[in-house]
């Protein structure tokens, strides 16, 4: 599980208030989600200014569609991540662009999150927990077999169907499907341990 249960409960409580139109709750939700969503937007769009426009679009959508959030289907975090990814893919397609998928992101340096940043109103404990989660996922991903990691990253960060992923990797569709399944299952298992 990528988030601690206490974080998930807190997120859901905040969402319940957002559904009621509570703007201070939405501010808190922004504080909890802005960094990971912005990081995703920067990675997929490769442009910070465009990523900020995408973020505005995504958060306004979250405000409008908060009532459609279903806790049975996903955590708030995952709902927000998948919504962001979907909106970014919409933007990329609308502009007739295709994502240059970067298999390795070594060219982009991490900017550490600090509690003193003006846009972050989370507690130091929240920031620490989130950084730990990020670190844990990266470690798990780094330890996956390279072909599984490559297939998952291409699938997640690319604007591609599974047929296109297979084509890009030059592998049969069945092989690519199996790699994605095995990689995601391992990721799930290792996150739970």
């Amino acid at each position: 599980m990528i988030q601690e249960p206490s974080q998930q409960i807190a997120d859901r409580a905040i969402m319940a208030r957002v559904v009621q139109g509570d703007q201070s709750a939405f501010r808190a939700l922004y504080d909890r989600l802005a960094d990971p969503l912005y990081s995703l937007a920067c990675k997929m769009l490769g442009d910070e200014v465009e990523a900020q426009d995408a973020m505005q679009d995504v958060f306004v959508q979250m405000w409008r569609r908060a009532g459609s959030y279903d806790p049975e289907q996903s955590s708030v975090f995952t709902w927000a991540i998948l919504l962001t990814r979907s909106r970014i893919i919409d933007r990329l397609r609308a502009r007739g662009r295709r994502l240059r998928v970067v298999a390795a992101s070594a060219d982009q340096e991490d900017i550490p999150i600090t509690a003193g940043d003006a846009s972050v109103a989370e507690s130091a404990a929240d920031i620490s927990s989130r950084n730990e989660s990020a670190m844990r996922v990266r470690t798990i991903m780094a330890n996956l077999p390279a072909e599984q990691r490559e297939a998952i990253e291409l699938a997640f960060f690319g604007d591609l169907t599974h047929h296109e992923v297979a084509e890009r990797l030059g592998e049969p569709l069945g092989t690519v499907k199996a790699r994605i399944r095995r990689g995601l299952l391992k990721l799930r298992e290792r996150m739970e341990t």
Partner: peptide
Amino acid sequence: ELREAAGSVAFTAPLRTPPASLKERIM
């Protein structure tokens, strides 16, 4: 569970913090 695992892949993106002005713009 697979959706949660898929969502966590976002954490492999290099960490970025948006400017404070973005939050005010959105709010």
